[in-house]
Amino acid sequence: MEARAVENWKEDPFDALLKVQSEQDLFKCVADMARSLGFEYCAYGIKMPVPISRPSVAMFSNYSERWKRCYEERGYLQIDPTVQHAFRSTLPIVWSNRLFASALDMWDEARSQGLQVGWAQASRGPNGAVGLLTLARSADPLTAAELAENQTKMSWLTQYTHAAMANLLTPKLAPETQITLTLREREVLRWTAEGKTAYEIAQILSISERTVNFHINNVVTKLGTCNKTQAAVKAAALGLLI
């Protein structure tokens, strides 16, 4: 019976998230689902793979305005251990003194503003976007029994939130991800990324060097880059070489 309940919770509300038409309405739905799991606070952030040097970022939360101002003004995004973990792993983490040992000021400030208990998990999409969902509350420790009961739902919420948000935000924040490369363009660019010259690529693919350069020029134009090296880096970041 319990397994069926989890299955229903997984299928119906989550599929509905994919149909929401705006990121603001989507976040409201996610926050409502977080509350049903016992978390009064919810936050979601997404980082695009481009621009490489300064990637586009979008953040949503129902935290207090005071905490949001504090987080931004003190640059906590740069030192937040949960964010750092998100770039290394998609495994879920629970807030703890040990986790925030490298950011004690941030941890003390968060707890002083009612953010006592939290859980977070990252997601990654095929276009290179990284998302992080955080569920938090002001009291009641997150017990092993609660995790055993709800972590499957929490993880599903994480994955669907990222999929839905990425669908809405990627075309706005990283329009380059909508670019399509031909099979031959991908082949040429993969070998370019390996450091091969146009002559070497021509030999490998049994085509003329002129044809190789033709494809490279097309890719450089499509991606709006200055040269083939930048094109290869950008295409790899966007997941276009898969």
Score class of each variant (00 low, 15 high):
residue 71 Y to G: 09
residue 71 Y to N: 04
residue 71 Y to D: 11
residue 72 E to S: 14
residue 72 E to Q: 11
residue 72 E to W: 10
residue 73 E to H: 08
residue 73 E to T: 11
residue 73 E to C: 12
residue 74 R to D: 11
residue 74 R to Q: 12
residue 74 R to W: 03
residue 74 R to V: 00
residue 74 R to M: 03
residue 75 G to W: 08
residue 75 G to L: 09
residue 75 G to K: 14
residue 75 G to T: 00
residue 75 G to E: 08
residue 76 Y to L: 01
residue 76 Y to N: 02
residue 76 Y to D: 05
residue 77 L to E: 11
residue 77 L to C: 01
residue 78 Q to W: 11
residue 78 Q to F: 14
residue 78 Q to S: 15
residue 78 Q to R: 15
residue 78 Q to D: 11
residue 78 Q to T: 04
residue 78 Q to K: 15
residue 78 Q to E: 03
residue 79 I to E: 06
residue 79 I to G: 02
residue 79 I to W: 03
residue 80 D to G: 09
residue 80 D to P: 00
residue 80 D to N: 14
residue 81 P to Y: 05
residue 81 P to S: 12
residue 81 P to G: 10
residue 81 P to T: 00
residue 81 P to R: 01
residue 81 P to H: 09
residue 82 T to E: 06
residue 82 T to I: 11
residue 82 T to F: 07
residue 82 T to L: 12
residue 82 T to V: 13
residue 82 T to G: 06
residue 83 V to F: 10
residue 83 V to I: 15
residue 83 V to L: 10
residue 83 V to S: 07
residue 83 V to P: 12
residue 84 Q to V: 02
residue 84 Q to W: 02
residue 84 Q to S: 14
residue 84 Q to G: 15
residue 84 Q to L: 15
residue 85 H to P: 12
residue 85 H to Y: 08
residue 85 H to T: 01
residue 85 H to N: 09
residue 86 A to T: 05
residue 86 A to E: 06
residue 86 A to G: 02
residue 86 A to I: 05
residue 86 A to W: 13
residue 87 F to W: 12
residue 87 F to Q: 04
residue 87 F to T: 10
residue 87 F to A: 06
residue 87 F to C: 02
residue 87 F to G: 12
residue 88 R to N: 12
residue 88 R to D: 01
residue 88 R to W: 00
residue 88 R to S: 05
residue 88 R to C: 09
residue 88 R to M: 12
residue 89 S to Q: 02
residue 89 S to E: 05
residue 90 T to K: 02
residue 91 L to V: 11
residue 91 L to N: 12
residue 91 L to E: 13
residue 91 L to G: 13
residue 92 P to C: 05
residue 92 P to W: 03
residue 92 P to T: 00
residue 92 P to Y: 06
residue 93 I to L: 14
residue 93 I to A: 07
residue 93 I to E: 08
residue 94 V to N: 13
residue 94 V to W: 09
residue 94 V to R: 13
residue 94 V to E: 05
residue 94 V to Y: 04
residue 94 V to T: 09
residue 94 V to F: 11
residue 94 V to P: 03
residue 95 W to A: 04
residue 95 W to Y: 15
residue 96 S to G: 06
residue 96 S to D: 03
residue 97 N to R: 08
residue 97 N to S: 15
residue 97 N to D: 15
residue 97 N to G: 15
residue 97 N to T: 09
residue 98 R to L: 14
residue 98 R to A: 15
residue 98 R to D: 14
residue 99 L to N: 13
residue 99 L to D: 02
residue 100 F to M: 03
residue 100 F to K: 03
residue 100 F to V: 00
residue 101 A to G: 07
residue 101 A to P: 00
residue 101 A to Q: 12
residue 101 A to D: 11
residue 101 A to H: 09
residue 101 A to T: 06
residue 102 S to I: 00
residue 102 S to M: 05
residue 102 S to C: 01
residue 102 S to L: 02
residue 102 S to R: 10
residue 102 S to W: 12
residue 103 A to H: 12
residue 103 A to Q: 04
residue 103 A to P: 06
residue 103 A to I: 03
residue 104 L to H: 02
residue 104 L to V: 04
residue 104 L to I: 10
residue 104 L to R: 15
residue 104 L to Y: 07
residue 104 L to W: 00
